[in-house]
Every structure is written in structure tokens, then in C-alpha cells.
């Protein structure tokens, strides 16, 4: 009887923990959609902001965030996947490579504002890129690199050793074996990790605060050395820096919803990619 009671209590506790999370997330989503949806129309998405963001749309912030995402992918993917291939396939396991791995994992835990300051110091000031898409993208790339490296390495290691041996025994070089008989099967995992990492970076404010984001810039960038507005920073401005935050509340909700859709869209893309590759390559 007491056993039964304990069992029931434990299950209820676990269930409560699960439901509580769902309820909190559900409430946040509901609140944002409920208040954001009425603001969301074509003009809000495609118009320039006016009067310091108090009126008009958020077009440049959307474009800015998309540029930053693209820049981050272009920089982070080759470096991340490249070093994952090196660590998993070429580097021998010794104290040095273990230290490198530890450093990468530690890097994942560095607060994003530290990345922001690092980007400001190195890319904006020292390399003299100025606050720009370039500086911001590199900074975001540094931030997502650990995620990309770790998930890519896991995806590569999930491919059985026997595939590599099978290729090598047929007289392939190591790179041929990796290119034709390892990478295709780990591609799904690599892309998934990359998208999830970049999805998180897209919503970050701190790293772009000091390296790229403009307070109010109602025009589109002309080159990678231009500043842009970005959704997370714009949201931060509207919510805390605006002279009349309550008046722009609907705009905050609208901006939050757009950012949410963008990030969730990326995650959805990751899920679809993963299931596609899982179906294509199974062993």
C-alpha cells in the first residue's frame, strides 16, 4: 500500500514537472502570438521604421538578422565542420587533442556578452572592420563554433568504423574514404547541429550589441562593412530604451513574434533535414 502510494506520488511529481514546463512555454508562446499577430501585417514586415521605431515596420531589422544568419553560416560552417573532421578522423587521441576538445567545450559555456566584447576588441577595433555585418557575423560564428564542432564530431563518429576500413581496403585515400563513405552519412547530423546552433545565435543580443547592431537605421546595408538593425536588439531597444515603452508595446510583440517565427523556422528546417537523411541513410 505504501509502495503504491510512493509510486503514485513520484509519478505525479514527475508529471507535474513536465506539465509545468509545457504550461510556461505554452503561455509565453500564446502571449506573444496573441498580442503579436494583430500587429503582423505586410506593411509591418516590409516598411522602414519611422520616428525612432515608434511607428512603421521592422523591415531593416528582419533583413539585418537574415544577413547575420547567412554570414554566420558562411563563416562557421567550413571552420566548424573542418575542425570536426580533423579532430574525429585525422588527429590522434593524445593530451593535446583532448585539451583542444576541452577548450571547445569550455568555449560553449562562455557568456555571450564576453563574445560581444571579444568581437568589439578584435574585429571592430583591432582589425578595424568597424561595427559591421562582417564583425558581427564573425563574432556570432565564434559563438556557435563549439556547437557545430561538437555535433559534427558526434555525427562523424556515429558512422561505423567498418565503412572507413571498407573504403581504405579498396585502395582509397583517407580523404576519399571520408568524402564518399563518411560525410554523406553524417551530413544530416552536421546540418542539424549547425542549424540549431545558428538558430540560437540568431536570437542573441549581446554579441551583436557591440559589433554590428544599429539603434535606428531605416535603410538597408550596402556592403558587409555596414551596420544593420537586428531583431533581438531592436526588441531590446523597444522594450527598454524607448522613451515611451508602453506605447510601442504592440510593436514589441510583433517583433518578438517575427523573431520567434524565424528561429522556430530554422529549428523546423533542422528537424526536416534530419528526418530526411535518417530515411535516406540507415544502417
Amino acid at each position: 500500500m505504501t509502495h503504491n502510494l510512493t509510486e503514485k506520488l513520484v509519478i505525479s511529481g514527475l508529471r507535474f514537472a513536465t506539465y509545468a514546463i509545457v504550461i510556461v512555454i505554452g503561455y509565453i508562446l500564446f502571449d506573444i502570438i496573441w498580442h503579436g499577430l494583430p500587429v503582423l501585417d505586410w506593411r509591418f514586415l516590409t516598411e522602414m521604421p519611422r520616428r525612432g521605431g515608434a511607428e512603421g515596420g521592422i523591415f531593416p531589422a528582419i533583413v539585418g538578422t537574415i544577413y547575420l544568419i547567412a554570414g554566420t553560416i558562411i563563416i562557421a560552417l567550413p571552420f566548424g565542420v573542418g575542425s570536426a573532421i580533423y579532430l574525429s578522423e585525422y588527429a590522434s587521441r593524445n593530451r593535446l587533442t583532448e585539451t583542444i576538445r576541452l577548450a571547445i567545450i569550455t568555449l560553449a559555456g562562455v557568456p555571450s556578452i564576453v563574445f560581444g566584447l571579444f568581437g568589439l576588441g578584435l574585429f571592430v577595433l583591432y582589425f578595424n572592420f568597424g561595427p559591421s555585418i562582417l564583425a558581427g557575423s564573425i563574432t556570432l560564428a565564434c559563438m556557435v563554433l563549439p556547437t557545430i564542432i561538437v555535433t559534427s564530431e558526434e555525427a562523424l563518429r556515429a558512422v561505423p568504423k567498418s565503412f572507413r576500413e571498407g573504403s581504405l581496403a579498396l585502395g582509397t585515400t583517407k580523404w576519399q574514404a571520408i568524402r564518399t563513405n563518411v560525410l554523406p552519412y553524417s551530413f544530416g547530423g552536421i546540418i542539424t547541429g549547425a542549424i540549431l546552433g545558428i538558430g540560437r545565435a540568431a536570437g542573441e543580443t549581446a554579441p551583436i550589441l557591440l559589433t554590428v547592431a544599429a539603434f535606428f537605421l531605416p535603410r538597408l546595408p550596402k556592403s558587409i562593412f555596414d551596420q544593420v538593425m537586428a531583431l533581438p536588439y531592436h526588441l531590446y531597444i523597444l522594450a527598454t530604451q524607448h522613451p515611451d515603452t508602453s506605447k510601442v508595446l504592440p510593436l514589441q510583440y510583433g517583433t518578438a513574434l517575427v523573431l520567434l517565427i524565424l528561429v522556430l523556422g530554422l529549428s523546423l528546417g533542422a528537424i526536416i533535414t534530419r528526418s530526411h537523411f535518417r530515411r535516406k541513410y540507415r544502417w
Binding site: 561505423p160 565503412f163 571498407g166
Partner: peptide, 19 residues
Amino acid sequence: IVTLRKKVGMVFQKSNPFP
């Protein structure tokens, strides 16, 4: 080593067809 392994083929204990 590529020439060698082309000349000396190998079949493994556990069959390892590629997917």
C-alpha cells in the same frame, strides 16, 4: 599504399556493405 591495397584486397569478418 593505394596501389598496394588495390592489388591486395580484403574481406572483413563482419560483412560491411555500404549503405
